[in-house]
Design a protein around this nucleic acid. Structure first.
Lengths: 234, 234
DNA sequence: GTATGATTAAAACGATCGTTTGAATAAGGC
DNA sequence: GCCTTATTCAAACGATCGTTTTAATCATAC
């Protein structure tokens, strides 16, 4: 019988084993710090199979991201579609943040299917400004960021858009750090519990506080009140 | 005459040229993405001079960080010493944040002496969990983080220490992103003006809002008694 | 069985990696 | 002048890099 045993076997096919192995290695050692031989050894496949299935090391790197990001951003779009359909007017800021960061936090809490590993990889990849990385990241994120920043503008009509864009930037930094768990702080203060169930409410409270913080002095007054520091460009 | 012309010459000595060149290259391409030949070519020195002056590539990497971090943390300690001497009681949260993040933001605004480049390097290095990096970073930061987290505990006696530690973590993420200017967001939303004079008030407002945000629900109900976490020493 | 296409295997390619060596040059004390 | 020390230089070391090549193996249809 041609039973659907493709899922039952506990050893995935070659391409999947390569993706899993390289995802972990890229997260641990970075793109340049991970060699083809490290990948194929960990995946228990032949050295040439990476180039056979993916074409090149860079293409493999992109494939690792596409596998996770396409699913992640699909969830984000589904969330905002549902929320905007249910709500008549603009969304609440907490809804927007929850729709955007919620799926990422859930994936970061998933230690069994590699989600946590990938989010660590994602966090460190943001800081690597390699050309080919920036290019495909922009493509992967274009639609989602457009939708959510528009929702955020509508949710906070009294806050200038430029200010919201900056705060979205700050929030992504805070979330990336929290998620990737790089322990830039724990590194010094000693370990603290990284219970993912604790992380989400803590992070949400922090983000909402920052997002709704009073506007800075120089930003709220377009006129040069303090003259020296508050230079505003046209 | 043995005139003090060492400072007047516009071409620094070999070791300094190596530090400047490698600082830029490490920020641009990371540790593994930067080769010795890239460094010595950019610095216009002989290939062997890196190993002669610094011993190894890893030692050079540490030297790049030590040159900047020792000065940065010296300013931070000087700031908190001065503030605590002038103030009788505990500091205000804004003072603590200003003492800790202020010097970093000033260094990030310095585009003429390499400060901005280094802060970009620092931001991306936080996310590289290489063993030897974490080790010397812990040493460089130990005293400063100890002093400032203690000051933050005293400034917010009603907030549990664990919550403060987390929020300090979040804040470092936001600042690191903002400073290193990796444009994880601008990458998608298009450029926005990264005027350093605008950055500081915007970031400070955001951080203070997050730091003083209402506590999350689950955090107050986690321990068998809030008394264990919210208790402040008498 | 045999032919056909997909996948895996072993081996090698040239290029580049960090580091070391030993001679050449520069600088300063006597 | 000479001697000593510090620094720079060209060249090479063995190891490892990403990729390619060619043959062997597998699965499936006829």
């Amino acid at each position: 019988m041609s039973a659907p045993q493709t899922e039952q076997t506990n050893t995935p096919d070659t391409a999947t084993r390569i993706l899993d192995a390289s995802e972990w290695l890229f997260a641990e050692h970075g793109f340049d710090g991970t060699s083809m031989r490290m990948i194929t050894t960990r995946a228990a496949v032949n050295l040439a199979s990476v180039n056979y299935h993916f074409g090149s090391k860079e293409a493999l790197f992109q494939a690792v991201f596409h596998r996770r990001l396409s699913e992640l951003n699909r969830q984000r779009l589904e969330a905002i579609n549902r929320m905007e359909a249910e709500s008549g007017g603009p969304l609440k800021p907490s809804q927007v943040l929850d729709g955007f960061f919620g799926p990422a936090l859930e994936m970061a809490a998933d230690t069994e299917h590699g989600g946590r590993i990938f989010m660590r990889l994602l966090g460190r990849t943001y800081t690597e400004p390699a050309e080919f990385i920036r290019n495909f990241m922009a493509v992967e994120y274009a639609e989602v960021v457009g939708r959510y920043s528009a929702a955020l503008y509508a949710a906070l009509p009294d806050v200038p858009k430029a200010e919201i864009a900056w705060r979205l930037h700050f929030m992504m930094g805070a979330v990336s750090y929290a998620i990737s768990g790089i322990d830039a702080l724990a590194l010094v203060t000693g370990q603290f519990d990284d219970d993912p169930a604790q992380l989400k409410p803590r992070l949400t409270a922090f983000l909402l506080g920052g997002l709704r913080a009073p506007l800075p002095e120089s930003a709220s007054s377009s006129a040069p009140a303090d003259a020296t520091t508050t230079r505003r460009q046209k």
